[in-house]
Design a protein around this nucleic acid. Structure first.
Length: 423
DNA sequence: TCTGGGGTCCTAGGACCC
DNA sequence: TCTGGGGTCCTAGGACCC
């Protein structure tokens, strides 16, 4: 059996932990730059506020209903996630974190007659008491069915946060009332194709022939189909190194027009990619810089920059990556003021393990010296905060700062912003 | 005026090899 | 007029997830 622990309206719940007054009132959290609504409390969902709705479009509705609005605070959410996962880990021999707010847990070793429901309730209660975050636990023989169980667990308070699919009757019943579009692994496009062929529910889907599913949805669709029928075949237990790492941001308001601004941003993205690569102990052999104008503006011609640089010797070195990114940008730059760049980013790819880098006989870089400098910079930054020592071309960040007009404090990660309790 | 930021996997088709 | 048969590798694009 598998369990899927899914935090309810995670970002909203994080904000509520430190604002108890908001526990029964509507809350939404916005994306970077306060662009879109990306998390909604149940009350906000009931108002009809859509996931991904542009903030400016729903602002009147939010104000009219006195909805509490927050800019995203990833320092807070990341730390709360870590706490939830730590507690959850105590209840399972194997935890597979799937996203910032979700994890599958193995419940192997629990017999058919063991009381999984009570065990689940203990888990949910422990996490609530330890972090203040409400969690729903779905339990089933496959991960996809555990997702289905969690789906029902969230919608029906009667389950007390724990929903089990542990019999054929329950499986059939659950799938019969689940729209096929709500199945994990079936997205909008495939759902529409299935609907047009008369497949409406998850049960309809699970009773199709394997060939039919393979033809329409390829092998990934077949895996979902098997899982719905109770055969476990989706493996996410191993967390392999990422094959590509992307750091990108949208820019506030009308976008950036000056090279120095985009350069600061791109240099910082490359530095972030360097850090992410080194965290997973890997190197990259290629780096791509991209930047593009707003796809929503029709009054100016669209424009995009996309340039790739290759490294003869795979690297994760901050200086090398930043230099390559800035050079790539400069090579494509058409002149200050010419385009309004709304988004830019750096992707590093062709990754390999740091210990498996192919050396080059004619390598002009002194790798030993490079590594010692990087270690010194890392040591300073880990003691004094990220970005204390950085490349000059990264600037101060003032050229492209994000809009965050509704930000909450970093309650759990910054001693200066810790919550105050009055007597 | 204002519209997020990450990832993975699969397939088709083109370029190339002998 | 007639124009082989078998591969591999790479990339772009589309689908999906949170």
């Amino acid at each position: 059996m598998f369990g899927l622990a899914d935090c309810n309206n995670f970002y909203c719940s994080c904000e509520r932990v430190f604002n108890p007054a908001l526990r029964t009132s509507p809350v939404v959290v916005l994306s970077n730059n306060d662009g879109c609504v990306i998390a909604r409390s149940n009350e906000a969902k009931a108002m009809g506020i859509a996931m991904g709705a542009p903030f400016y479009q729903v602002k009147p509705l939010l104000e009219a209903n006195k909805v509490a609005v927050f800019s995203s605070n990833y320092a807070l959410y990341g730390d709360m996630s870590r706490r939830v996962m730590m507690l959850l880990d105590d209840f399972t021999p194997e935890l597979m974190q799937y996203s910032i707010d979700e994890a599958f847990i193995s419940l192997d070793g629990f017999g058919i007659d063991s009381d999984l429901r009570n065990y689940g309730k203990t888990i949910v209660k422990t996490i609530m008491r330890g972090t203040g975050i409400p969690v729903t636990l779905g339990i089933a023989p496959t991960k996809t069915l555990a997702k289905v169980a969690a789906h029902y667990g969230k919608r029906h308070p009667g389950y007390g946060g724990v929903c089990l699919i542990d019999s054929e009757e329950k499986r059939t019943k659950a799938l019969r009332s689940l729209p096929v579009a709500d199945v994990w692994g079936i997205g909008r496009r495939h759902a529409a194709q299935l609907e047009s062929r008369g497949v409406h529910t998850a049960l309809d889907f699970s009773t199709l022939s394997e060939d039919w599913v393979r033809r329409l949805l390829t092998v990934t669709g077949v895996r979902t189909w098997r899982e719905l029928r109770g055969e476990s075949c989706i493996d996410i237990s191993e967390l392999p190194q990422k094959k590509s790492i992307c750091t990108s941001r949208s820019f506030a308001d009308g976008g950036l027009t000056q090279r120095w601004q985009v350069e600061e941003a791109v240099a910082s993205f490359a530095a972030a990619c360097s850090r992410k690569l080194r965290e997973q102990r890997s190197c990259c052999a290629a780096l791509t810089v991209f930047a593009y104008t707003s796809r929503f503006r029709t009054d100016r011609p669209p424009h995009c920059i996309n340039r790739t640089a290759a490294f003869t010797v795979a690297t994760a070195d901050q200086q090398e990556l930043v230099a390559a990114a800035v050079q790539a940008l400069r090579a494509e730059w058409e002149g200050d003021g010419k385009h309004h760049y709304k988004k830019a980013g750096v992707i590093v790819w062709n990754t390999c393990h740091a210990a498996a880098v192919q050396a080059d006989l004619f390598d002009p870089i002194d790798r030993g010296r490079q590594a010692r400098l990087a270690a010194a910079i890392d040591a300073i930054n880990s003691r004094n905060g990220r970005g204390t020592v950085r490349m000059a071309v990264q600037g101060t960040g003032r050229g492209w700062s994000m809009k965050r007009e509704h930000a909450s404090p970093n309650y759990t990660t910054d001693i200066g912003q810790i919550i105050k309790v009055r007597a």
